[in-house]
Nucleic acid binder design. Structure first.
Lengths: 175, 175
DNA sequence: GGAAACTATTTTGACATCTAAATATTATAT
DNA sequence: ATATAATATTTAGATGTCAAAATAGTTTCC
């Protein structure tokens, strides 16, 4: 099997394991991994705007909004509109939020954590730097995303079954 | 910053980059990464059941069902109920499916791929084996963890000595 | 032959996630 | 001061994803 296929498989397994752990966390601690990460970020800063959080935990702002909606509904955080600049919205932990966050497990598999920490120092840094390299190689492409690609294939995509394009990968259409 | 926090950050960046690429793929080629992976799996086998596909690409059966629903709606695959065993449902590529699949890019960032392939051989294998180790360390947890939860799955997990199944803890050994 | 046990798939209900568009507000330039 | 550009958040619409429950079909065993 080709190297890159093996890389792909390993990556998918890592992604899946992370997701499965998040669900387990949710059952055991009542918080998913992203929820916990966001709570931790807020706890460490005191107050944060959506944008701050998005940058900090590497997700889009829209995602932060929906996660905060759930956390707010459960009374774990509060939102407050900025006074100086009313476009901003600051998130704070409530006591309940601080409480649950402090007793929750880590957002990374505990099994993984303990295994990882048992490795020799050089092994840890080898793994870390490999991950960072992969991340860097992947993000590099984003920076100068090519706007121009051959879209010939796209026009042919939905010939079958006719009208219903649930997909909408193309231009606007209701005029 | 602690090592494991850095690991966590790198992982989230990788996960996000993978997701973003999938969306870009969807715009450019009309297929998301999982859709493409599933199409490729079917193409290589000729016909597959949901369970086969789930095992092959490392996702749950329910996920396969929803993805195939979309592919079927677009006329890229067809389902056919098994004749011998009517519980089974086989998925086949249509001509349109074969066509689009063949002209689609790889399911891994091309940017990443080309950078990766430009690395020295030893570097590639270092990175690959780091990823595999991380995957293994994460999946290991699945097997013997889950203390509090009632799991019917547990009885199906035989106390394997050395052999590690890198995938989900409870794949049915269909064969 | 029929009930119990097992196997395969689909459905249901939640989350996380993104982009693009819609809103709301602030800052800037004419 | 007013229109326009820039910034911050939310809403809308799509996927992907899973566990658990519901369905459907097969096997086994008395």
């Amino acid at each position: 099997m080709a190297r890159h296929d093996e890389v792909l498989i390993a990556l998918r397994q890592i992604i899946r394991a992370t997701d499965l752990y998040s669900r387990k966390l949710s059952k055991v601690a009542g918080l998913t991994a992203p929820q916990l990460l966001i709570l931790q970020a807020i706890a460490s800063q005191g107050e944060m705007t959506m944008g701050d959080i998005a940058t900090e935990v590497s997700v889009s702002q829209a995602t932060v909004t929906t996660i905060l909606d759930r956390l707010e509904k459960r009374g774990l955080i509060e939102r407050k509109r900025g006074e100086r600049d009313k476009r901003r919205v600051y998130a704070y932990l409530t006591d309940a939020g601080r409480d649950i966050m402090e007793r929750a497990p880590t957002p990374l598999q505990d099994e993984f954590m303990s295994r990882f920490s048992r490795l020799e120092d050089w092994e840890q840094s080898l793994i870390l730097s490999s991950l960072q390299r992969v991340a860097a190689m992947m993000n590099a492409g984003d920076i100068d995303a090519s706007p121009v690609l051959d879209l010939g294939a796209i026009d042919r995509i939905q010939p079958a079954a006719g009208r219903r394009r649930t997909d909408s990968s193309f231009e606007t259409d209701q005029k």
